[in-house]
Each structure stands twice: as structure tokens, then as C-alpha cells.
Amino acid sequence: MDTASITPRLNKHPDQLVVRQAINWLLRLRNNAGNTKLQQQCEVWRAAHHEHEQAWQRVQSLQQELSANLQAVPGAQVALQTLENSSQRLGRRQALKLLSGAMLMGTAAWLGKDLVGWQQWTADFATATGERRSFQLPDGTRLELNTDSAADLDFSPQRRLISLARGEIMVTCGADSQVANPRPLMVQSRHGQFEGIDARFVVRLEGNCTRLSVTAGHVAIHTPTTAGGLPAMVQAGQSYLISHSQAQQAPALDMDVGAWAEGLIVTRNMRLGDFLQEVARYRHGYLGCSSEIADLRLSGVFRLQDTDKLLAILPQTLPVRLRYRTRWWVNLERAV
């Protein structure tokens, strides 16, 4: 066995689920001050694995930095104390999300540095810009998150629910074999609720609507319902756009909806302007093009691992040139 594979990597970031556990311990200890048994349990958890201690130190550091920054904001300490008092009457999940809102009172510089990271910690599953992750859920369902995405999990004896808070996910699910009464696998966005039936499907938040694309099996759209009051059944190969009031079939896309799970963008006669908007989701800063070349078309398979290398390919196939003002400001223009 390779020694590197079993040696702890103390300098890597702890897993986000471990960080959530650390935050939960912090909340429990703050809401049960003087509980020596709880303190001992926390110490046992910290000592159980090096990632536990690393996550604990990271959360403690972030909490201390937040408190220090709030000292400079008039009235912020009173507001934070009110939030903490309210959190004692809530469950840990609600308390966690409530206390995370206290960061909105921090300084602009601090928020710019750490708000995204805190949002990732408060979700059950999350990715940063340019990151993609895959998870195996307790029932065997496979959940994959695209760039800059967040989702929460609510599994109970009565239901299996995945809530998409931000970005895009791919779900591969089958029948529920863990309980006597099978539970439907539901995915919820702010626009509707969808049931996967032995299916693989992609759910993506797009401004004022949610896009549902089914690649295998079928998915029932429970809300909003169709005109007849029945769920809309989406078959493999179909896409729907769902708003708060309606669900309507979408025209065929000019790219493979699930290729991102393999680290790819696969296009079919796609507008350059639309292609750049898609690539921009995987990098920081500005990426765009002049209006005179936005309607150029391209087809191909592009790797997302390094978007700078991806962009460098475009002048080889299209009459365009790249103009870098900085590493984070890139514009495409017509080649002279």
C-alpha cells in the first residue's frame, strides 16, 4: 500500500460535513454553557480524527474573527446576542442558519473574504466556483454538484428530500429499499418539487426559473401542476422550464446537459456568447465577447479543468483573439 495514501494530510481543508459537525458542537456548547458532560463529548469527537480537530480550530478561528469585526459595528453586539438568545429556542439546523446571518453585520472587507465560505459550511453539500463534487447518499442515491452550488438533505422514515439552494445538481436514484414503505425521492427548488423515478436528471436554477433535464428514466413535476391538476411526467431526453406558476417543455439545448459531471462542456452549434456565459460559471472575474462575434457558432468537446487552456483553443477554430486585461478580466474580439 502506498504510504502517502494512509498518511494524514494535515494541511488540506477539512471535509465540509466535518466542518458542519464542528459548527454544531460550537452551537451546542454555547447554548449549554457549563455542561461538563457535553464538553467531554466534544473533546472525544475532536480527538477521534485529525480532521475533526482541524475543523474545530477553523470554526473557532472564524467565530473569533467574526466577533472581532463586530466590535467595530455600532449595535452589532446587541444584535448578535439577540440572535444567540433566539437560537436557543431553535433546532441546531435553524440556529446554524440564523447565526450565519449575523455575518451580514460584519465589515465589507471581511464579508468579501469569507461570506461564500460560510454559506458553503451552512449547506449539507456545497461547491466553490470551478469545483465539482460527487456524493453517495445513505439510500444509494448519487448526488453530483456543479460549480458554485449548494444543496440540503432531509432524509427521514417518511421521506427523502434534496433541496437545491444554489447552482446545479445531477441526481441518479432508484427505488427505496431501506424501509418497508418506500419513500419517493424528491428534489425541491424555489420553483417546484420533482420526483425521480429510477432516473438520472439535472436540476439547475436559472434566475426566475428552474430547468429540469432528464437523461434516463422519468421525473414527475409535482408543483406547479399541469392544467388538469396532475403532475407533468418528464421523459428521458426532455427538458422543462419551471416557474412559480407553470411548467413548460423547453426546446432542445445546444449542449450536453450532464457533461459537466465528467468535467466537460460538449457543444453542438452553440453561440459563442452563450458558450462564454457557460464557461464563466467555472472561473472568477469577467469573461465576455464583443457583440460582433457573439453569434459565431462552435461545436466540440472542451475540458473544464483549466479554463485558460480552454479559452486558448478558441482562436484556433474561430476568427477571434483573446484580450486579457488581468487574469480575471478576459474579452474576446474579432481577429484583425
Rank of each mutant, 00 (worst) to 15 (best):
N331D: 13
K309P: 04
L96V: 06
L287C: 07
Q57T: 08
A108Q: 10
C289G: 04
K309R: 13
Q277H: 11
G288W: 03
V187H: 00
G34H: 06
S149Y: 00
G101D: 10
T226A: 14
R159K: 14
W110Q: 04
P157M: 02
E144K: 04
R283S: 05
Q63N: 14
S163Y: 09
A128D: 15
C289W: 02
W56I: 02
E51T: 04
L253W: 11
G207W: 05
T172V: 10
D295Q: 12
R160Y: 05
L70V: 07
P138W: 02
S149A: 03
M170G: 04
G217P: 01
M270C: 08
R200S: 06
A335C: 13
G285A: 09
Q246F: 14
V59R: 06
V18R: 09
A335F: 10
L27I: 14
I265R: 01
C42I: 11
H191G: 04
E84V: 12
N31W: 09
V330N: 02
V234C: 03
S67C: 12
N269L: 09
M270V: 07
Q248P: 07
P157T: 02
T7P: 07
N269Y: 11
V171A: 02
V202H: 00
Y286W: 12
V320A: 12
D154N: 07
V266M: 07
N35P: 04
R133K: 11
G117W: 13
Q57A: 10
V234L: 04
T307P: 00
S245L: 14
R283W: 06
W118T: 14
R190W: 07
L304T: 06
T129C: 13
L311W: 07
Q119E: 14
H218V: 07
L111N: 05
A261G: 07
L27T: 03
T317W: 15
V179E: 04
I6R: 11
S243Q: 12
L90P: 01
N331Y: 08
P14I: 09
S239I: 03
N181S: 09
G91Y: 06
V59G: 05
N331K: 11
Q77H: 15
M270P: 01
T122M: 15
G101M: 08
L296M: 10
Q277F: 09
L80T: 09
H50I: 06
R93L: 07
P251V: 10
A247R: 04
Q94Y: 08
E144W: 03
